[in-house]
Design a protein around this nucleic acid. Structure first.
Lengths: 228, 228
DNA sequence: TGATTCTGTCACATGTTTGTCACACAAGCT
DNA sequence: AGCTTGTGTGACAAACATGTGACAGAATCA
């Protein structure tokens, strides 16, 4: 959810402005002033989207875009071109440029973010949503629903993800660290004991249905979802 | 995976451009310049998707789309409309047009392919102009009318499209982003919170009939239309 | 044209969720 | 038994998500 956006812009003021807006909107901003540093950033940080200035020193933005498109590793990274007023829309979006969208300077932050989100939206792969059943519980990812013997069970977002993970990884012990990685994500820093609390909340939610014993404590190791 | 795409476009240059891009992307391109040759292609080659120019000689694209939608054999073929800048989005995405998505000329090839892939991916055959009934509500697309237990319910255009989408996609959670794509269209840039407001307006309109609980909030995920 | 509806956005109200404690309790060890 | 370590539990404030009323501009209609 926290997409990385590479800003390729030689003008420091504009670069700063872009980075500010992007960061403000909750994205991670990477920066580059020219084609070389852009490539370096791309190799090291694998951005999800590139904001590319049409005019760049040495190599122009168009040429960089072309190169990006011809390289298998970067072919699928969407590009939004930054152009000066008056550039021909046809040229910008034309075949050779390979841009997904463009925006003319000066631009409103709102429009910039809207375009970024729109482009990202179309490039995010679809996730799976198969029905999961285990231990008398049924979980429907698409409907975001859990039922035990037909009765609905209300869960908060985190408990839902936690249960989903457990149900798809039953009969195996997971440490608190592993659960944090899998359910919270690798980039979140929270106390390990937080897992305990959510386990408790999940058990409490399952308890009315008599399903709370499905989640077992393995002292010294972690937790396990087990049908037995 | 090798989908057949029918391009219906009278302007030779654009037709060529489209065919080139489509082929390049690994699809099979079929071509037609007018409604008659389009029908011929459809009958002979059963395309998986149709790229249709809004303006066509003789019969306009809109009329062809309408015909496609009313013919049982072609009802389920998704359509992407090609429009000039400035066309009304309501008209384009409106129910009478029957388009699944649209794109304005001039467009970027990447954008086009992204749309094609998106439409193919999510394409669930759904009849655009048939009466929909769900959760005690009845919606008549052709008449642009909604009733609950016989009593008419007044809705604005956006609320109508929103409800129509929900009723044809019940029991499933949609994020604000997905709803924007599906109901507002992929080219419209509005705040995500706008969805909330329209949900509220829709609920308010359904409330006199006691049907407002059909639209449920799923915290952290989005909204769901559900009969339960 | 003016009147009327519709839309998108905001600011604020309200309600949930989350991570963290501090402490209680349980299990293993010598 | 005492000691040590690990886990359960209730409370809480801050962060966060959603509901809601108001408003101005756009679109529509007569």
């Amino acid at each position: 959810m926290n997409a990385k956006i590479l800003i390729v812009e030689d003008e420091p003021v504009i670069q700063e402005l872009l980075a500010f807006n992007v960061t403000q909107a909750g994205f991670q901003a990477l920066r580059a002033e020219d084609a070389d540093s852009a490539w370096q950033q791309i190799r090291n940080n694998a951005p999800d989207l590139i904001l590319l200035d049409w005019m760049l020193p040495n190599t122009s933005g168009v040429i960089l875009a072309k190169q990006l498109r011809s390289d298998t590793a970067t072919r699928d990274i969407p590009i939004i071109m930054l152009t000066a007023r008056g550039e021909e829309r046809d040229k910008v979006l034309g075949l050779e440029s390979g841009a997904d969208d463009y925006i003319t300077k000066p631009f409103s932050p709102r429009e910039l973010m809207a375009r970024i989100r729109a482009v990202l939206r179309r490039h995010v792969p679809q996730r799976q949503d198969e029905v999961v059943a285990a231990g008398g519980l049924e979980l429907l990812p698409a409907a975001h629903r859990v039922t035990a013997k037909g009765a609905a069970i209300e869960l908060g977002p985190t408990e839902f993800r936690l249960l989903h993970f457990f149900m798809t990884h039953a009969e195996r012990v997971y440490s608190r660290t592993q659960l944090l990685d899998q359910v919270w994500g690798t980039q979140v820093f929270v106390e390990e004991r937080t897992v305990d609390v959510h386990i408790r909340r999940l058990r409490a939610a399952l308890e009315p249905a008599g399903m709370d014993s499905l989640i077992q404590t393995v002292r010294g190791s972690g937790y396990r979802f087990s049908v037995n």
